[in-house]
Design a protein around this nucleic acid. Structure first.
Lengths: 251, 251
DNA sequence: TCAATAGTGTCTTTGAGACACTATCGC
DNA sequence: GCGATAGTGTCTCAAAGACACTATTGA
């Protein structure tokens, strides 16, 4: 906090940007909106918006999340949202000086998004495809995979790395499954986010051996369409951290 | 990034606040400034200031760090600075709407600070004392230990937790020692930050067994005033992470 | 009975925790 | 020699990695 007089300093616009993740058909996916207005009209970007005078950045992020996805903050399990970091490069928005407080959010079973008032479209994209396109503009992905507007490719990269890391030492994976869930479902979260499947036996040992990570029910789920044994159903436990962490395969 | 027209949205002031840490006389310490102007004149606060039009938040943080401590960004080992998180509660500054991008910085052997132009004073404080005073206003610390202005107690708490956690899985402790250094010196960093001393033998095994954490020299240091064997001197290695992590004692 | 998935058991290896022991310094 | 600090060795135990094996379902 400076002691200078504020009158001598220029105003900034403050926005929030959201990287909203879910698992769709086994793929780690993120929500993008197609911009309807300049700049970058027609480009795809992370959803976001301006912070209002009476709210902090987190409240603005929840509001935007609701507007884009219908996720409610309260009521049953409303997903998880946390601040990522703030992006403030002077030229990051061509219109004016904008500082953006980026957030990461995720929830299971998010509905198909409906575009906000200024967006031309909104849909889920596979994170891996977007990262390939970002890293290598001619990468081996479908031709319609877009590059991102503004500095959103950087934000997406940071968000993905945050989530991959937090799966190791927190119970964040629980936020990606709807209750009740099976252990194979939970394991598929790790598989989708990390890109590699944890060993089945070792995964069960770790999850069941971590106090209050998951809570068993008495009932079993239904097999997938491919058939097979019915898995036991669980609910989320109260544990927040995993110690020692569940490490990604050292491949 | 919103697609709304920016003209309809109110301006914010954007500042950076800094939690600058070092180890002084074996104590994990943070730099505070005594405010010379309202609000909170006479109170102690984290150093900081307004972000200028032509710089991003990180550049503003380096500039303020230099102004308060004389630490240069370039040249020899100029310390480490990273973004912590952004604080944006509507009432956090009584004058106006201010969003602050907080940063964490540290370096070994920082000089005595000289107060900036609007500060009445500047000095190092033991982190533990400040945290006790924050948690328990009548805690068992010296009577002159202050409470912090604005929401800086919260920022300090978050910063300390970040550093304690990062010592576990990164080589961040190296930023607190001047080259060349001895392993006992490096161990004292962990002891000061965590408040507990890692076992001497296990600490050496971990540090020397982590590839490129430290690089041995051929020379030995001088014993402390209490005497004893001379320790071998090392330099910082290129490794950035420690895997598996060096865990805090489970006390 | 077969394919597919869920779940169990166990051998091996890695590495942390604890702590005893040795080495080198100033005095 | 002694006290103090630096450094080594080693026993034990917790837990991860790898992988073989069994169980339960639908077709």
């Amino acid at each position: 906090m400076s002691t200078n007089d504020s009158e001598t300093h220029p105003p900034f616009a403050v926005t929030v940007d959201l990287a909203v993740f879910t698992i769709r058909d086994g793929a780690f996916s993120v929500l993008l909106v197609e911009r309807g207005v300049e700049p970058y009209a027609g480009s795809w970007a992370l959803p976001g918006g301006f912070v209002e005078p009476d709210e902090d950045a987190e409240a603005a992020a929840w509001r935007e999340l609701h507007e884009e996805t219908g996720v409610e903050r309260f009521g049953r399990h409303g997903g998880h949202l946390e601040q990522l970091r703030t992006y403030s490069a002077p030229g990051r928005d061509p219109r004016m000086r904008v500082v953006s407080v980026a957030h990461v959010a995720f929830a299971p079973d998010l509905p198909e998004p409906h575009p906000g008032s200024d967006a031309a479209g909104a849909r889920w994209w596979a994170v891996d495809d977007l990262l390939v396109r970002t890293t290598d503009p001619e990468g081996e992905v479908a031709a319609d995979v877009p590059r991102l507007a503004f500095d959103h490719a950087e934000i997406l990269r940071d968000a993905v790395e945050r989530i991959r890391a937090k799966l190791e030492y927190t119970t964040l994976a629980l936020e990606f499954v709807a209750e009740p869930f099976t252990l194979p479902e939970l394991r598929r979260v790790y598989t989708a986010v990390w890109g590699t499947a944890p060993d089945l036996g070792n995964f069960r040992r770790k999850v069941l051996g971590t106090d209050d990570f998951v809570v068993p029910t008495e009932t079993h789920g239904t097999p997938s369409e491919a058939g097979g044994r019915r898995a036991l159903l669980y609910r989320r436990g109260a544990a927040a951290s995993i110690s020692p962490p569940m490490l990604r395969a050292t491949g």
